[in-house]
């Protein structure tokens, strides 16, 4: 698969839900073929930003642009991996992957091979006929990424795909994600609140402030994604830096949530 040459740029993105401003003047550059991680405290508008980047939400102000050439095999330039996998419960694993190919120019005769290929990449070949309800949370997320890879995206948007998983599944899937993203060479924007995920996957890390979310800092990690290790002292140092940046905001956000619950 050739590397994505598509750059995704957001300029001055602002968004509000009624009177509540959740994002304010956010700029973001997702470089071609790189992973840009967006982190920030709870409620800072990370998922809202991703929705705007993917064209699923219209920003109140600002704009999002794509620039560059998508590969010839690309069937859906901007593709999502959702937090809850969003699988159709009435379709098998293979059926869920097939779903996103059925409206594309890919000939029906080539669909089975494409489905088999992405299921093999995500270690799901033995579960092609399984119903989503028969899968663990980690396996459902694998289907979500298989589905996204099947359309050969130019830009892959991932919305906290590991947040609902237990620690073991998360660790295993994170390794696989790193390998898959590196191999697919897509321009990726990955939203998470987990600093370890950010350090392991991110080449650029955008730190958002507490609501309304603004860009507080942008951090680069030059080390290649493949081969990164969670215990690597340099990555632990990055995590510590990121925690310093968001700690106060995270605490304030927690107090805000607790106050709202009280």
């Amino acid at each position: 698969m050739s590397a994505s040459a598509v750059r995704l740029t957001a300029r001055g993105v602002t968004h509000a839900f009624h009177a509540l401003t959740v994002l304010e003047g956010v700029d973001l550059d997702a470089a071609p073929g790189e992973v840009t991680v967006v982190i920030g405290p709870s409620g800072c508008g990370k998922s809202t930003l991703l929705g705007i980047l993917g064209g699923l939400l219209a920003p109140a102000a600002g704009e999002v642009r794509l620039a560059g050439a998508a590969g010839g095999e690309c069937l859906n330039p901007i593709t999502y991996v959702f937090q809850d996998a969003s699988l159709l419960p009435w379709r098998s694993v293979a059926g869920n992957v097939s779903l996103v190919l059925e409206d594309t120019p890919l000939p029906a005769s080539e669909r089975p091979a494409r489905i088999a290929e992405v299921l093999a990449q995500t270690k799901l070949s033995d579960f092609a006929a399984a119903w989503p309800k028969q899968l663990s949370g980690g396996m459902r997320q694998r289907v979500g990424i298989a589905r996204a890879l099947a359309v050969r995206p130019a830009v892959l948007l991932m919305d906290e795909p590991l947040s609902a998983l237990d620690a073991q599944s998360r660790a295993l899937l994170l390794d696989d994600f790193a390998a898959l993203i590196a191999r697919a060479s897509v321009t990726c924007v990955y939203v998470t609140h987990n600093l370890a995920e950010a350090a392991l996957l991110g080449q650029t890390i955008v730190v958002l402030s507490r609501r309304p979310g603004k860009v507080r800092a942008v951090r680069r990690i030059e080390q290649p994604i493949e081969g990164r290790h969670p215990e690597d002292p340099r990555l632990l140092e990055v995590q510590a830096e990121l925690w310093e940046l968001i700690r106060d905001d995270a605490a304030k956000a927690e107090r805000e949530i607790a106050g709202a619950d009280a």
Partner: peptide
């Protein structure tokens, strides 16, 4: 029908007709 499933269809550029036939109707069944 969960909105997240409809959003998924839109995120994959599925046509309106396909979203209705493959997501909305089976979900409402």
């Amino acid at each position: 029908v969960p909105r997240s499933l409809i959003r998924m269809g839109q995120a994959f550029n599925m046509s309106w007709r396909s979203i209705v036939l493959k997501i909305v109707l089976p979900g409402a069944l």
